[in-house]
Design a protein around this nucleic acid. Sequence first.
DNA 1: AAAATAGGGATATTTTTTGTCCTTAATAGA
DNA 2: TCTATTAAGGACAAAAAATATCCCTATTTT
Lengths: 162, 162
Amino acid sequence: MILKSQVEWALHCCAILAGLPEGRYLSTKALAEFHGLPKEYLSKALQSLSQAGLVDTTLGPSGGYRLAKAPTDLTFLDIVEAVEGKTRTFVCTNIRANNPCRAPGYCESGPCAVARIMWEADEAWRGKLRSVRLSDLVDTLSKEIPAELWKKSFEWVLGRAG
Amino acid sequence: MILKSQVEWALHCCAILAGLPEGRYLSTKALAEFHGLPKEYLSKALQSLSQAGLVDTTLGPSGGYRLAKAPTDLTFLDIVEAVEGKTRTFVCTNIRANNPCRAPGYCESGPCAVARIMWEADEAWRGKLRSVRLSDLVDTLSKEIPAELWKKSFEWVLGRAG
DNA sequence: AAAATAGGGATATTTTTTGTCCTTAATAGA
DNA sequence: TCTATTAAGGACAAAAAATATCCCTATTTT
């Protein structure tokens, strides 16, 4: 069970978008080239962000994506769920219903104990992702990445924007 | 990203094995029929438990599986990792290395911030799974399942054991 | 008018999951 | 000793999901 690579892509793209000057957009092309990713497929990930309402888009030259909210209002969970979906990582197929001893019309009352525990773990995972804001990531990155590289990167990426 | 169905199977099988009388074994066949699962494929899940040292096995008629440890010493994480593997659910492909602005020989110091956060969430998930013992599950099940059905189930399954 | 863009549908390729089949070695019981 | 039963595991097949690629459309900027 491994998350889609699109999750990684979306997170890195959002980190870049978070540093974008007011009113500017970044195209799929710029984001793909910057990260060395296949443009068409990255586009699907960005469309997921768009459908989830995390980014605004506009068409035409100088068009592309920008964040729809402040980085303080965007969590890792928002981004992960936009790409990966909100479905729980454990699916209960209710195999207890196959128990040959159960009464013919035996009706289970709610989800089984196994599923409940697995879902609690899933929620612990989501809770952690919910607790980290995109702004936290940007803070960390701006500390860790050499100032020169940080600056150059934004110049590079903006140079590709119309 | 959804866990293998074998995870669900393994957990339910362990719950049954936890109620097994001392010295008895349950065969793949019995466990598969009880849960309505494909015998050959369930066998792979049970082999994973065996390879992880969670269960003991023995051959021949009346052979099969039994827990290798007390249910209080077996966690959900043990079982999930036996089947699903210990690999983290987020794989960092280090796309920051593709940044065209980075110095030619620029060497990253440790994993990137995105990966670290995703791995913390992964650890939150594992931490929760680690905190739940197989004995906790059995306690819950024995409370929730009608005593009659509980009893009958063990009789049924033991009836298939040699 | 022309160039660039997001959106999205159709399709293809690769990987993972799910499942089956068969052989081998060990064991219990008649 | 013989037979039936079992786990282990290798080989293979089918189905589903992930990872792309291609192309068309409507929109927007220049």
